[in-house]
């Protein structure tokens, strides 16, 4: 496959395999961490893109998930807390021939790096941002995070956390993101399908990946994984398809948002058909609110995928336009421009 997002990236000559993308470094996450599943999923997915491995870069910040680049046999940059989107922006904006992936977590992306995340999204630099959301601080040993539910009892909040969490999908849509999706660490097939669309999108793609921290927040997404409950709460979004799940359906609500109703209670034409390419983000935003109150219904899949020129492309075009208009810069002409005089 080769979507627009990969159009400028050189193609690999031979066939690549999962093994090509595994580095020789020992993986050091806690046994049972959801990060293992995501790493395996990404390593097995990368060969499918068919791009040169050396033109692939993984950039991360700080946190458990940010160790990720060390385990990928590509170029990698493990940077500092929260700054990966900024560093990746400079890299991607100056090198449109690279496929740049940002690996971040809920603390890294939404707390300390919140500013960089929202600006990367609005700018639409050609980045794929994978946000591992485990709703807890893992590396610092278990404080609540900006996605933890209100009242979370942790070491730093013995009487419960007070601040309302971010919904990363709502936040991204509010930040003018062109591509926003959610998937789950344990569902490799779905993860692959979302990564495929994210990579094909030219511009910034934000993929929230629900990831279980079995040490500090075990079972946070259990209801989405347990066969007894998962089908009743997981809303699978597919472009062009009516939004239905189990015996439920989604329709427009009188409040201006969307609501879940028993399927038998609505006419077929009342059921909302998902349009990920809708230029108006209102419905995508409304869908992102379905999990309120916490985790009643959780949509996964691509909420929004709208094409617009990427920042790096526009930047290159300005350079080309300036050169086309006046020719390539000459240092001598530059220095001698303006008012000069000669002393002999």
């Amino acid at each position: 496959m080769n979507g627009k997002g990969l159009a400028l990236i050189p193609r690999a000559e031979g066939k690549q395999t999962l093994k090509d993308f595994k580095s020789d470094q020992e993986v050091r996450w806690c046994p049972g961490c959801g990060d293992y599943a995501i790493l395996a999923a990404v390593q097995s997915f990368m060969p499918e893109l068919g791009i040169k491995r050396e033109n692939t870069v993984f950039v991360s910040g700080i946190g458990c998930s940010s160790r990720f680049p060390y385990y990928m046999n590509t170029y990698g940059f493990h940077s500092i807390h929260g700054r990966a989107p900024a560093i990746a922006t400079g890299l991607a904006a100056s090198r449109p021939d690279l496929s740049v992936w940002v690996i971040t977590g809920d603390g890294d992306a939404l707390s300390i790096g919140g500013n960089h995340l929202i600006h990367a999204l609005r700018r639409n630099v050609n980045l794929n941002i994978l946000l591992f959301n485990n709703r807890i601080y893992g590396l610092t040993k278990g404080q609540y995070s900006p996605t933890s539910e209100v009242g979370k009892i942790t070491k730093s909040t013995p009487m419960g956390s007070l601040d309302r969490p971010f919904n990363p999908i709502s936040l991204a849509i509010g930040a003018e993101a062109g591509f926003v999706a959610r998937t789950l660490d344990s569902d490799r097939k779905h993860l692959h399908s979302v990564l495929r669309e994210a990579a094909a999108h030219r511009g910034t793609s934000l993929v929230e990946i629900y990831q279980n921290c079995n040490i500090f927040n075990d079972g946070a997404f259990e209801r989405m994984k347990d066969p007894a409950t998962r089908d009743a709460i997981t809303v699978r979004l597919e472009h062009g398809q009516p939004i239905v799940f189990a015996d439920q359906a989604v329709r427009l609500a009188r409040t201006g948002g969307v609501e879940v109703v028993p399927r038998e209670s609505v006419r077929e034409e009342e059921i909302l058909v998902h349009d990920a390419h809708n230029p108006d983000p209102s419905l995508a935003f409304a869908l992102s609110r379905l999990d309120e109150p916490a985790f009643t219904h959780v949509p996964i899949g691509v909420f929004r995928s709208v094409d617009r020129p990427s920042y790096d492309q526009l930047m290159s075009e300005q350079l080309e336009a300036a050169t086309a208009k006046k020719g390539q810069g000459s240092l001598s002409d530059l220095l001698h421009g303006g008012d000069t005089w000669r002393i002999s």
């Binding site: 940077s79 560093i87 922006t89 890299l91 690279l98 500013n115 300005q318 350079l319 336009a321 390539q328």
Partner: peptide, 30 residues
């Protein structure tokens, strides 16, 4: 003003992003 020298200028969202982007570009060979 001097884009025809191949210069990319990036007005960042803050000081940290300004230097971060410059370092990212340096990693890429700029």
């Amino acid at each position: 003003k001097h884009k025809r020298f191949g210069i990319r200028t990036f007005q960042a969202e803050d000081e940290i992003a300004g230097v971060g982007a410059a370092l990212g570009a340096a990693f890429g060979g700029a």
